[in-house]
């Protein structure tokens, strides 16, 4: 199916480590530079924090989308479960942030385990539609259940620990993002990750050589759900509210678009894609007030261009331009 998958991730040269190190140092230095800019700087710290979180969300989806070849239109469900876990634990149970954030991926993983158990029985389009159905089902439940989730009002005023200045929260998100990145990288380079890719390339053959395809896909689905839950929890604390929009299927589309724009056959592609999309959105909206309303048209046009002319995304373009095949 996806022919241009290259699996030479293990053979990373020193150059790549160097680039990675520079990027990481830059990311750590960024908020301190931005904080010199006053109000706009504060705003951009908030934006970059959101970028990190949405990048994590996109990368989590890419575990099943790019690596697993499973198109899920219900990934926001786990994002939302994570967000509501943090919101409910902190607002209603008065739990500390650390505990809430630690439990967000757990509850999301449980939700993913239940939903995934059904979904991995289907393939292709049917899998996509079933994930959509489950995602919307969960959205509806959260939307209706006033007494527990606050319905369409959402949950507001989630407490913020004193020590968490915007910079501190940025750093927390960055550290968690990097840890997740390394863990995902490790998983996808392990035999588990290779098996997942084998299934993507040729499910029949994977079955023939004795791989329990469903089980591997199920585990992968749960993993992706857990990371999405963490991202949801982080965004919830950043915004200090949880709302039903977090679970809506249009939210599920966001990481798909990010993966497509960034390039879904690599680990960093989706992260770059979501950062680029958020950045473009803000640039477009700041360019002229009337453009605030038309962002969706821009997004649609970007998407059309990518689908028709560059299905490999930005990473794919970069590889085509440099003639490199490192994915």
């Amino acid at each position: 199916m996806m022919v241009n998958a290259r699996n030479s991730e293990a053979s990373s040269g020193t150059a790549r480590w160097l680039v990675g190190a520079v990027v990481v140092v830059a990311l750590f230095a960024l908020p301190f530079i931005l904080s010199q800019l006053g109000r706009t700087g504060e705003y951009w710290i908030w934006v970059t924090t959101e970028m990190l979180i949405m990048a994590l969300f996109a990368m989590s989806l890419n575990l099943i989308l790019g690596y697993g070849g499973m198109v899920s239109f219900g990934h926001a469900a786990f994002f939302g479960v994570g967000a509501y876990t943090v919101a409910l634990l902190m607002k209603k149970a008065g739990a500390p942030l650390v505990l809430a954030l630690a439990l967000a991926p757990v509850t999301a993983a449980i939700a993913a385990a239940v939903i995934g158990w059904f979904c991995v029985r289907l393939i292709g389009l049917y899998f996509a539609i079933l994930t959509l159905a489950f995602g919307q089902l969960l959205y509806m439940v959260v939307f209706q259940w006033y007494t527990f989730t606050g319905g369409d009002d959402g949950i507001h005023g989630i407490p913020k620990p004193e020590i968490l200045t915007p910079i501190a929260y940025y750093l927390l998100c960055l550290v968690l993002f990097l840890i997740c990145f390394l863990v995902m990288r490790m998983i996808m380079n392990s035999s588990f990750g290779l098996t997942i890719r084998t299934i993507r390339e040729n499910m029949e053959r994977a079955k023939f050589i004795g791989v329990n395809v469903r089980r591997f896909q199920w585990y992968n689905f749960i993993l992706a759900g857990a990371f999405a839950g963490l991202a949801g929890g982080l965004l919830c604390e950043l915004n200090r509210f949880a709302q039903t929009e977090f679970l809506h299927w249009s939210k599920s589309a966001e990481p798909i678009l990010a993966s497509l724009v960034g390039g879904m056959y690599s680990l960093v592609g989706p992260a770059i894609g979501s950062a680029v999309l958020i950045f473009l959105k803000i640039i477009v909206q700041q360019a002229h007030p009337s453009l605030v309303e038309t962002w969706a048209i821009f997004l649609g046009l970007i998407l059309l261009v990518v689908v028709l002319f560059a299905p490999g995304g930005l990473v794919g373009l970069y590889q085509r331009l440099t003639g490199k095949s490192e994915t």
């Binding site: 798909i256 678009l257 497509l260 649609g300 059309l304 689908v307 299905p311």
Partner: peptide, 24 residues
């Protein structure tokens, strides 16, 4: 242009149209 492409690209093309048409 996309009849022979993957499901995902087809879905996303039509989704892009949703974004554009709804806003129009």
């Amino acid at each position: 242009r996309i009849y022979r492409a993957e499901h995902l690209l087809q879905l996303l093309l039509t989704y892009a149209l949703v974004l554009i048409l709804d806003d129009l």
